[in-house]
Nucleic acid binder design. Sequence first.
DNA 1: GTCCCCTGCAA
DNA 2: TATTGCAGGGGAC
Length: 925
Amino acid sequence: MPRLVLIDGSSYLFRAFHALPPLTNAQGEPTGALFGVVNMLRATLKERPDYAAFVLDASGPTFREALYPEYKANRPPMPDELRAQVEPMCRIVEALGFPILREEGVEADDVIGTLALRAAAEGIDVTISTSDKDFAQLVREAAPGQGLVELVNTMTGSRMDSVEAVVAKFGVRPDQIVDMLALMGDSVDNIPGVPKCGPKTAAKWLAQFGTLDGVVAAADTVKGKIGENLRDALGHLPLSRELATIRTDVALPVGPRDLGLRERDVEALRELYTRYGFNQALRELDGGSAVDAAEKEPARARGGARYAAPAGGDAPAPDPALSAPGEYETILDVPRLETWIAELRRAGRFALDTETDSLDPMRARLVGISFAAQPRRAAYLPLGHDYPGAPSQLDRDTALEMLRPLLEDPQVAKIGQHGKYDLHVFRRHGIAVRGYADDTLLESFVLNSSQRHDMDSLARRLLGYETLPYEAVAGKGARQIPFNAVAVDDATRYAAEDADITLRLHHALSPRLAEAPGLQKVYREIEMPLVEVLARIEANGVMVDADELRRQTADLSRRMLAAQNKATELAGRSFNLDSPKQLQALLFDELGLPALVKTPKGQPSTNEEALEAIADQHELPRVILEYRGLAKLRSTYTEKLPEMVNPDTGRVHTSYHQAGAATGRLASSDPNLQNIPIRTVDGRRIRKAFVAPEGRRLVACDYSQIELRIMAHLSQDEGLLGAFAAGADIHRATAAEVFGRRLEEVTPEERRAAKAINFGLMYGMGAFGLARNLGIGRGEAQDYIATYFSRYPGVRDFMERTRQQAREQGYVETVFGRRLYLEFIQRGNQAQRAGAERAAINAPMQGTAADIIKRAMVDIDAWLAGQGGRALMILQVHDELVFEVDAGFVETLLAEVPARMSAAAELRVPLVVESGVGMNWDEAH
DNA sequence: GTCCCCTGCAA
DNA sequence: TATTGCAGGGGAC
C-alpha cells in the first residue's frame, strides 16, 4: 500500500529549538533547530515514502482567530535565533525534494488533517510526523479500502499506530482526544479548559461519561473544588472543543497524490550542509549510502541564464579544504597590523577587499580593509566604524601610511574580486595601488562569461561554500544600515570572509585558466590590464552642462504639456499617457482601433510599431508618439543627468562593467553613458550638454563599420574583402550587388535596404525580420537574402561554419580566443536553439570588436600616461572613444589615437577610424 | 518597498 | 521571428 508522510514542520522547529543546545555554525549563525529538523527529514527519507509533504503555518489569520480572538494570544513571539533558521530550513527541505505546503489562512494542523483523511480514504497509509500530541485525534486503523493514519515522533522515537496505542498513551480513544483537550485547555494556545483538570482527570471523566457532552450533562455530579471548576467552565467548553478540533475538510490546492518527492538537489545540499556544518549529513551525501534515489538526475539547472553553459568549466566536487570555514581576526592595534603587514609581504601575494559606506566608488569612504594570504586565515582592519559603543580602532591615516609601502609595491601581488572598486577607494584615500595582479571576477568571466560572477555565486559553485550574505550583517531594503554602522564583530565575519574567499576562488580559478592558454591570454593581456584603464576613465568623468540640460527639460516639459492637452482633446477624456495599460484600454477598447502588435505576454502592445500601424486611422497615436519621445528624453536624460553630477568633482562618473556582457562588451551604468541619444534632433541636443571645459576640446574617435569588417575578415568573402580594401561605402556596395546596379545608380532606398540586410545578417536575422524591418513582403525579403548570399557566398559559409562549431563544441570564439558558451545550442527547445544560433553568429563579431577596442584602450592609456595630463580618455561607447584634450594637444592626439586604434588588430581588411573635434560631444561627431 | 511589465535609448 | 546592454514609469503585491 502506498504511504504518505506528512511532516508538521512548525512543531519540529519549535521542539528542536528548545530541546537542543543553542548550536551555531562557524559563522556564528544559529543552527540547533535546523540540525534537529534535518536529521528528522533524513530519517524520514530512509523510509522511502511514496508521497510526502513538509507543512508549515502561513502568516495571516485563521478561522480559529475569527472564532476566538484570544487564540494563541499567550504565545511568545518567535525568538530571533529561531526565526533566522526558518529560511535556511526551507531551502534544505526543498533541496531534499520535499514539497513544502504553506496555506494562507489555514493552520498547518488543518492542512495535515485534511490531507491525512483524504489519503486514508483513497487507500493510502498515512504517517503524521509531529511532536504535537493533539494529532492523536486523527489516528485511525486500516480498514478495507482505507489506509491507516499513524503518528510518529522522530525526536522521541515514539509511534502511535493503533487505537490501543493511543489509549495506552492518553487513557482515551482517538475519538475522545478532542474532548480531553477541551477539558484540559491549553495555556500556550490560550484555549480555556477546566482549571486544575489535567490529562488524568480528563481521561477519568471520559472513561466514566463517554464524551464531553456526557461530562457536561453529568457536571452536577462531580464533587469538590474541581466539580465547581467544571461547572464554571461549562459555558466555554464547546468553544474549546472546536478550537482543539483539527479540521479535515479545508479546501486545498493539492491532493495526496500531488505530493511526490522530487529528486534531491545534491549540489544545493552540499552547499547548505557545508555552510551549517552538518558533517554527518555531508558524508552521507558524498557516500551516497542513505538515499541513493537521487543520484539518477543531475541537480536541477539554474533558471534565467540565457547561455549558461557548463561545458569545460563547471563545478568539480569541491575540495573540502576549500569549503571549510575560516578563522578570522580583527586588527585593532598597531602591533597586530605590523604582524599582518609582515606576513602579507612575506607571502608576496594576498587577497584584499575594502569595506565602505557606499556602493558608488566615487563617493565611498573607507570603513575597513580585509586581507588573506592563505586560505581560511584572514583579518579585518576596521577603520571607520562609528556607531555608539564601537570599539576603538586604529586611526585611518596612520593605518594607511603603514600599509602604503605594501599596497604601492608592484612586486607584491594583490588579488581581488571586482578590484576596480577597491582601486577607486584607495586612490581616493591617497593610495595608488600597484601590483593588482588578479581579479576573480574576470577570471570567472573569461572562463565562462555566461555564468554569474558575484562572489556568493562563485563560492557556491566552485567551493561549495555558502558566504555570509551582506544582508545578514547590514540588513536590507529600507532598514539597511551603512557598513560603518555594522558591529565590528559582524563586519569581521563578513569582510574577512570576502578576502578569504577571494583567495580561495583564485586558487580554484587560476588553474583552470592555465589549462586553456587561449583564455588565459585574453585574461592576462586584455582584461587585467584594462582594469586600471577603466578605473581611470571612470575617475576622469565627463563634464556636463547642467544648466543647458535644465533648459532642455523646461522646453520638453512645455511640449509634453501641449501634447498631453491635444491627447486629452482627441480622446475626449483625460488619461495617463505614461500608462501602457490605460492607453491600451483607450485605443483598442474605447476607440476600437485594431491591435496589430502583441507584447511578449500576449497583451495588445502600444509600442512605437503598433502606434505607427494605426496612425493613419486616428490622430491620437501620432500625438502619443510625440509625447513618448519627449517623455523619454526628459525622464531618462535631461532630468537625470544633472542629478548625477558628483559634488566633489563637478563631473559625471559612469561605471563600466567589465564582466557585464557575455560577448565581452562593456556595459555602463549609473548613469548609462552608452545610450545617449543621437538619432533625432531632440536627442542630439542632449549630446551638446556633454562639454569640454575652458581651453579644452572633446575628440571622438570611432571605428567605421567595425563589425562588418570583422565579418569580412572571418568569412574571407572575396566580395566583402574587396569592397573594404577599395574603401567603398559598404552599404552602397552591397546594394549594387544585391540589386544589380552600378555603384552610382544605387538609390537611397536601395542603400537603406542593403544597410538593413547588412545589420540584420550580423544579428542572425531571417526573412521575417528583414521583411518587418523594411516593411516589405516576406517573399521579397527572402529574395534579397538569397541574392545576398549568392553574391557573398563566403558569408553564407562562414555563418554555417559558425553554427556548426557552436553545435559541436558548445561555444564560439572571437579572433582573440575569447569564448562564448551557448548552453541552449545543444539542449534547448526549438526557440531556444534558434536564439542560441543567432547569438552564436553575432558573438564572434561583437566580441572581436570588443576585444579590439579594449586592446586599443590599454595601448592608448599607456601612451596618455606619458603626456602630462594634456588629454584624458573619458568615454567608451562600444566602437567609439571620447577624449577631453587641451586645445593645443588636439593635433597630436589626432595623429596618435586613430593610428593606435587601427593598429589594435591585424585583420584582412583595414580598420578605419574616423575622428571629430568640438566643444561638445555632438560637435565632435 | 519590491518586483514585474512595457517601453525605448545606444552600438 | 534581429544581437548586446540600462533604465524609466506604472502597477500589483
